[in-house]
Write a protein that binds this DNA or RNA. Structure first.
Length: 412
DNA sequence: CCTCCACAGGAAGCGCAGGAGT
DNA sequence: ACTCCTGCGCTTCCTGTGGAGG
């Protein structure tokens, strides 16, 4: 190994140095978002419920379809994948004919794409690209028929499927085509959109929702336990202070009850500790990680926003920063509140400056609503003291760095 | 009380891109 | 290769809403 000598100071190989750096992590992967833990605390009830529904498959009978919903980070995906995994393991020891596949509908977002993915799972060595939907579907039926398989299809983020009615209809019609004792197809739908169920076709709804499971958000105590468990496998012993862990749990519980943010918070805190060569993760790092995670979340969201919506948001951030006095307000409104009409006028100017066209006022209002549901801005109805019925717009404090983020996004 | 203001948000329809069927 | 179809982003048009002002 070549070593350079700078005035008597010996420089070790750069990578060697990096690798020798001490870390608070033991197994960093175990705290990444994609990691599926062996145990799922506070979800025993749901685990039992799903497995008791699916047990029928082991007896060669068709289980009811299941629809699982709850907010992000409440363990829906983990629970379903866990149960399917257990089922596969149990199958090895018995003679049951059960096959399952997991499909993320964010990626496979149409009937055709989802069926393709199914086929790929069941016939790994064959390729059905280019074949018609009917043919691909027939292949899946064959798969059930051939070995009298009970086929379980888990559709995650099922609300992303464009023609869901047709997909569900096709799959349930498939069951009619399969003779008694020839196997069957069961759907496990997962969604984090609670309202989405109501938008479904009545037939689809009754078919999909034969069994329903709701996942409530975790509270601070539960998040604490979950984090504790993850810390044990992901971090070196005693490298995370108890108070830091509690803080992370409390923050996540307050925000959303989302286990993913909680885990991400600790991951970032750990990285910060490493960076500063500290051997422990303390409150300080968690606090720093909090703003980092918030920024990350906001930045990621902004980056996926349509260009025009970014401009709308940018305009709001611009005006909020300027604290531009509002001419039309007669009463004394809280500072920083912007009137939607004025923002629209300014937005048109901003768009011109960037040599972009602008959307109509109607669509501008729709963008405002969207930005509000994302939690980047908040709006209130104009009350007494002001002419007309408008909305007062405020940039949420967590989104204070929006302007910089968008400038970065526009220039990059 | 009526009218005006300054919007909110529903409904219909339009042009386009991309995928399916032929 | 070609039409046909459909979802998507958007505009246009319209009705509704809540307060100010005469």
């Amino acid at each position: 190994m070549v070593r350079e000598n700078f005035g008597g100071f010996q420089l070790a190989n750069l990578f060697e140095q990096e690798l020798q750096k001490q870390s608070v992590f033991l197994n960093r992967d175990a705290i990444s978002q994609h990691f599926i833990p062996k145990e799922l605390p506070f979800r025993e009830k749901q685990l039992k419920e799903i497995s008791s529904i699916l047990t029928a498959a082991l007896q060669g009978k068709k289980p009811n379809n299941v629809f699982v919903y709850g907010k992000v980070g409440t363990g829906k995906t983990c629970v379903v994948r866990h149960v399917l995994q257990e089922l596969q393991e149990f199958k090895q020891k018995s003679s049951a004919r059960v096959e399952s596949c997991y499909i993320n509908c964010r990626v496979h977002n149409s009937k055709y794409k989802a069926l393709q993915k199914c086929c790929k799972e069941f016939y790994p060595s064959e390729n059905f690209l280019g074949y018609s939907a009917a043919f691909v579907f027939e292949k899946i039926l064959d798969f059930a028929r051939k070995n009298k398989n009970q086929v379980l299809i888990a559709l995650d983020e099922i609300d992303k499927v464009k023609d869901l009615d047709e997909l569900v209809y096709a799959l349930s019609r498939g069951n009619d085509e399969l003779e008694q004792g020839e196997g069957a197809i069961t759907i496990i739908g997962i969604s984090n959109n609670v309202l989405f169920k109501e938008r479904l076709d009545a037939r689809t709804k009754s078919s999909l929702c034969q069994e329903e499971l709701v996942f409530a958000p975790y509270n601070a105590e539960e998040l604490k336990e979950i984090l504790k468990q993850r810390v044990e496998i992901a971090f070196k012993p005693k490298s995370v202070q108890e108070s830091a862990l509690n803080l992370a749990a409390a923050i996540a519980a307050q925000e959303s009850g989302d286990a993913r943010t909680a885990v991400l918070l600790l991951l970032r805190a750990g990285e910060l500790s490493d960076k500063e060569s500290k051997e422990k993760v303390s409150d300080e790092e968690v606090k720093k990680a909090k703003s980092k995670v918030e920024e990350e979340v906001i930045y990621n969201m902004i980056a996926t926003l349509p260009d025009q919506e970014q401009l709308v948001l940018y305009t709001i951030a611009l005006l909020a920063a300027k604290q531009k006095p509002l001419q039309k307000i007669t009463g004394q409104q809280e500072p920083g509140a912007l009137m939607s009409g004025e923002v629209f006028e300014e937005y048109k100017r901003v768009a011109k400056k960037f040599k972009e066209s602008n959307v109509s006022a109607r669509w501008f209002r729709a963008y405002l609503n969207e930005l509000e549901t994302y939690g980047i801005i908040s709006t209130t109805k104009s009350g007494p003291g002001m002419v007309g019925n408008t909305r007062l717009i405020r940039l949420n404090p967590e989104a204070s760095k929006v302007k910089e983020s968008i400038e970065k996004e526009i220039s990059g």
